[in-house]
Design a protein around this nucleic acid. Sequence first.
RNA 1: GGCGCAUUGGUCAAGAGGUCAAGACGCAGCCCUCUCACGGCUGAAUCUCGGGUUCGAUUCCCGAAUGCGCUACCA
Length: 555
Amino acid sequence: MTNSALSELIYSDITKTPADYEAMYPARELPEGAKVTRLGPSPTGFIHLGNLYGAFVDERLAHQSGGVFYLRIEDTDDKRFVENAVETIISSLAFFGINFDEGVTENGDIGIYGDYTQSHRGEIYRCFAKKLLAEGKAYPCFLTEDEITEIRAKQEELKIAPGIYAGWSKYRDWDKDEAIAAEVEAKIKAGEPFVIRLKSQGTPNASGDDIRRNTVIDSVRGKLEVPENFQDIVIIKTTGIPTYHFAHAVDDHLMRTTHVVRGEEWLPSLPIHVELFNYLGFELPTYCHTAVLMKIGEDGNKRKLSKRKDPELSLDYYRSQGYHPAAVREYLLTILNSNYEEWRMENPDASIDEFEFTTEKMSSSGALFDLDKLNDVSKNTMLRIPAKDIAEFLRSWSAEFAPEYEYVFKDMALLEQILDLGRHDARPRADLVYARQIMDFISYFFEESFRIEDEYPAEAAADVKAILEGYMATYDHNDDNGTWFDKIRALAVELGYAAKPKDFKKNPDEYKGHVGHVSTVIRISLMGRAQSPDVWTIQQIMGEEMVKSRIERCM
RNA sequence: GGCGCAUUGGUCAAGAGGUCAAGACGCAGCCCUCUCACGGCUGAAUCUCGGGUUCGAUUCCCGAAUGCGCUACCA
């Protein structure tokens, strides 16, 4: 039996040839330098910050170069499928501003390079597997799980590399032994299960200078000396479904991907991919192996690493806390490109599209996720978003994650005023970080959530009634900020408090306290807390009626 | 165990064979100030370790340590 006969025996149903697919999926006509990238999530629906991080690289690379960014569903692992995962993936990413030009969408595929779901592409993979079989670059392997375990045990004993490679599967060299050839043929005809393995040309267990290496340029890491592969890895599983490695080679070639962005956990399998592309006669894409994002424990600053299933790292966590997508994007960019932050300081109002993102500026060591930094970036980002937009954002956030705040959105014009408080001053306030925090920050504006949280300052506790009565006696809602405060100062002096904090500090024995203490009494009566933005401005937003009723309530 | 990748303050990081080793977040103090925030100033804090190359290494080389990853018919 020849290789070709074997390939026919196994894949008699495959009538197309690789050339047919090459013709079906011609090279893309794109401007010079345009990059084609893809995101290939498995459909578990679980997206974390790390996925977003990688997706950003893909998205920026493609859209900055006038290229194409497409979504391919990598569902070759049948055990992992979760219902509605695709919708979740698309909507989560869209929420953070990641949009695809091509590939899988909620309403079917877009683009001529499909199908974009790997489980629908079986025929294509088998066609290329058939080609490798016919060329003697792959072989059917009937080793059972038990046999493989046995082989592994033996290899461990010998202290050599585990796995199936030259010398370990008798099916590898079936064509050199008539008995095995006959066995293979009989097994296939009998319908026994088997996998297709790559027949690697590498030298097993070479060491030192004997290891042949290929030079691959990684866009993030620079020059990589990739050792040659010698493992006969599985390319088609018993189920007829390809492994990631094989699907990657076939898909990224046929879909004409130019840049493969993936986490550094793929680095060890790069040798396999180099050999596969080589065998298949495909041009190697440009790889961008990104560093993995790690996490810092919220309790203290213990260094806690984290991969998947960490709720802290889940995208939904940030959505439910109410971080604005622009803030998360901004944060990700600052850790993605070391020169971004600097650029942002120089171009505070520029669109992120104007920033030239490069893979060379990416760090090759993993960054720890830093919540403090996110919060800082967020409050500055919020400053650039109009109050009207923030109000809308909060409303949709509340509808999805925190319906208990419904009352906040009864009067959107009022909410806008509240959110804009102090944001247009010469030195604008940066109080707004994320939705949950904002809800607390503005809670005193609403009767539903107003409550007295802080105690009156000790210096003025005895005079609360006098202060509030004095305040009401001269209160005029039409006073301007200056007049209003002059009255408080006068009241303070009248009651035996220093007009300025400095006076009190100099002669603490001459006064009960200072204006600050007096105004804190007013502040607490109105806002329930000792710290807040400017009282006069808040009063203007609250309106005369609410001001008076709150003060009187405390008298 | 083997292999791969990584290693500049607490965190993110710039950086070049000779620098007082940028900057940001966080922290501390001071200033501004009716509180807070904003802003300003100041400060504490870093080149993982050991060899080598060199007149000189944080920077180049080699080891080690540490961390992470891979070592599947998972991706």
